[in-house]
Amino acid sequence: MVQVTLWGSLRDAAEGETVVEVEARNFKQLLEALQARYPGLKPQIERGVSLALDGRVYREAWFTEIGPDSEVVLMPYMKGG
């Protein structure tokens, strides 16, 4: 199981939790698992999210592997100027 930290305003879409656990070995599986378990997260995931894995931000990269002890944080889709 992978522990995923959500940002605070997603709490209501995840049964009041900001840290949730899903079964996933990479980012694609993780996003699919999150939407399946918490349908309320689907609108935000469809609008776009980034993922931070052990402190590094990934904007896409479905097949980035997630280790059992990795820190995974869901973030809004990032852009710059």
Partner: peptide, 16 residues
């Protein structure tokens, strides 16, 4: 109060 390696950032991830 400075963030440094190992700090849990205010936006979630832990800094390297």
């Amino acid at each position: 109060n400075a963030a440094r390696e190992g700090t849990k950032s205010s936006y979630g991830p832990t800094f390297d």
